[in-house]
Design a protein around this nucleic acid. Structure first.
Length: 316
DNA sequence: CGTTTTTGACCGGCGC
DNA sequence: GCGCCGGTCAAAAACG
């Protein structure tokens, strides 16, 4: 909610209720002196209103600066955390006495996900090339997305706009949290699969691993934007996410934004025209949902109508 | 009643 | 060959 307040979507409809006094061609003549006097006072009021507005904007600016500072701090903390983890990682891999190659890929994938892993594409590169059935998997584009959810939220659902059919769930050895397996609902036409599992380190983070690329258009961006979305893509990190993921960022301005979602990686995506359009949609829907906005709009319209009526009656 | 989810069984790869 | 493990299948249950 705080978030929405920062985005000043107000159209300043009530900012200066006295403004119409200036514009309205009120009777000249006998009341002229009085009007002049009133005009002066209204200018004063306008000035004070502007000063007030200025101080409000300054305060807002200050607040934003503070938020940005906190954001940078969080980012740096997280980054150093990841660096530490990455430096420890090779030892951990050695410690695992029994590691098959494929699993090594999978396991390190997971690790690299949690550590924002720079080179998370390892799984596909070191695969035995002689394994025919695996060849498709090797070629399949693998990408990972970390999604922050509420810790209490036990469902392994990552809203990315696509429709998925769950076909399995397994508890894996290195993570007590079950891993869910999904296929694109357009399967078998669309070969994309995804695995979703909570992070060992942070249960509030869900790691989704996508295999392959959708060979069909995004079902409905609108659908994804209006769906219950307290989740936000928290970090795609440096993971080589497939482009198909870009328009699937779930954003609901009416919901509070988790800290993790204020990631710099998001801002990169904001430049995309799709995302901009999407943001406009979100803003529009937020505005229309806001009762105070509706009330202000109604007041402005009615005032305008009254004003026009005056014009008309004075002309006659 | 059709679709989706759950869950135990099964399969295949890998290390020993 | 055996056991472990991740991934998949498919029947049953749940849901709309």
């Amino acid at each position: 909610m705080e978030y929405i307040s920062l985005l000043d979507t107000s159209l300043d409809l009530n900012a200066n209720p006295m403004r119409f006094l200036d514009e309205a061609p009120i009777n000249k003549g006998a009341e002229n002196n009085f009007f002049e006097l009133e005009k002066k006072t209204s200018v004063k009021e306008e000035t004070s209103a502007l000063v007030e507005e200025l101080s409000r904007v300054s305060a807002e600016n200050k607040k934003l600066t503070e938020m940005l500072t906190v954001l940078c701090e969080n980012y740096n903390n997280l980054r150093s955390h990841l660096m530490n983890y990455a430096s420890k990682n090779p030892d951990r891999e050695h410690a695992m006495s029994r590691k098959r190659k494929a699993e090594g890929g999978a396991a390190t994938n997971k690790n690299s996900v949690s550590n924002n892993g720079g080179n998370s594409e390892s799984s596909s590169s070191d695969e035995d090339s002689c394994k025919k059935p695996r060849e498709e998997h090797v070629k399949a584009k693998i990408s990972r997305v970390c999604v922050r959810t509420e810790a209490s939220d036990t469902s392994l659902v990552v809203k990315d706009g696509y429709q998925w059919r769950k076909y399995g769930q397994k508890v894996t050895r290195d993570n007590p949290c079950p891993r869910a397996y999904f296929k694109c609902s357009f399967a078998p036409a669309c070969p994309v699969k995804k695995k979703v599992q909570r992070s060992v380190e942070d249960q509030s983070i869900v790691v989704a691993t996508y295999e392959g690329e959708h060979n069909h258009p995004h079902p409905s961006r609108h659908e994804s934007s209006t769906s219950s979305a307290s989740r936000c893509v928290a970090a795609q990190g440096s993971v080589p996410c497939s482009a198909s993921l870009a328009p699937t960022i779930t954003l609901d301005l009416t919901k509070p934004m988790p800290n993790g979602a204020k990631d710099s990686s998001r801002t990169g995506a904001l430049g995309a025209p799709d995302v901009q359009e999407f943001l406009v949609e979100q803003m529009a829907s937020s505005l229309t949902k806001d009762p105070s906005f509706k009330a202000a709009l109604a007041a402005a319209i009615s005032r305008r109508i009254i004003q026009d009526d005056r014009h008309q009656t004075e002309k006659w």
